[in-house]
């Protein structure tokens, strides 16, 4: 689903973000991406979502070589990726329903279909009945779940989450991770960037650790969905 081959990213200022990164996340797999702040987590996610492009190496997402993707094709690739952000990125002046409906509106679904899918997505994240609320009226955990509902509403094959639990307490964080597990159970590939090692240590998923722009534990663990950090 996600394949990095000797990928390097250097920002215009000369700052090296990623160096020779290799890893392969298979279809249907769920994995965590960890590392200190500045280790390159955000850069890696930006390469996957084509916010940035690599200087060297090959990135392919869902079978598409990113280097060959034209500017016009980028939106269509992003439709296959559900993205979840630490600060939610919700539209504050729009209702919960409109927020979640956005990807479907962009794809041009009919009104009836949008309603059906949005309510189903909200039900899945436990926010059924709050579709008329505005994000500002919701708690942090609820806002994050609105963001998740928006990410899954068009059933993308790949889910990316950037510090999804960064602003939540441990109990809520666990709920959110359980939610990701259910999506993974239904076949969605999930990659979660987090520095909350305590939270993921108890889970049985593969962990990619970034250190100074390099991935540790990328290649050798592709076969077994077990982590050396499993307690």
């Amino acid at each position: 689903m996600i394949q990095f081959e000797q990928v390097s990213k250097v920002y215009p200022g000369g700052q090296k973000a990623l160096t020779d990164v290799n890893f392969h996340l298979k279809r249907g797999e769920m994995a965590f991406l960890t590392g200190h702040s500045g280790a390159g987590k955000s850069s890696l996610l930006k390469l996957i979502t084509v916010i940035e492009r690599a200087n060297a190496g090959r990135v392919s997402i869902n079978g598409h070589n990113i280097a060959k993707l034209s500017r016009k094709d980028v939106p269509f690739l992003r439709r296959d990726i559900g993205m979840i952000f630490q600060n939610y990125h919700l539209l504050m002046e729009k209702s919960v329903f409109d927020n979640v409906a956005l990807p479907l509106v962009i794809e041009g679904f009919s009104h009836g279909e949008i309603k059906k899918r949005v309510l189903a997505a909200l039900d899945m994240v436990g926010l059924y009945g709050k579709e008329r609320h505005h994000p500002i009226m919701l708690s942090g955990g609820e806002q994050q779940r609105v963001g998740i509902a928006r990410a899954i509403v068009n059933k993308p094959p790949l889910l990316l989450a950037d510090e999804p639990t960064g602003n939540l307490d441990p109990k809520l964080s666990m709920d959110i991770l359980r939610l990701f597990e259910t999506f993974n159970d239904s076949g969605t590939t999930v990659l979660i960037a987090t520095h909350d090692l305590g939270l993921i240590a108890r889970m049985k998923y593969r962990i990619l650790t970034l250190k100074q722009g390099r991935v540790l534990g990328g290649e050798e663990l592709t076969s077994a969905p077990a982590s050396p950090l499993t307690v």
Binding site: R79, L102, I106, E107
Partner: peptide
Amino acid sequence: VMKLVGAT
């Protein structure tokens, strides 16, 4: 946000 969720 619209660009992130795939709007042309």
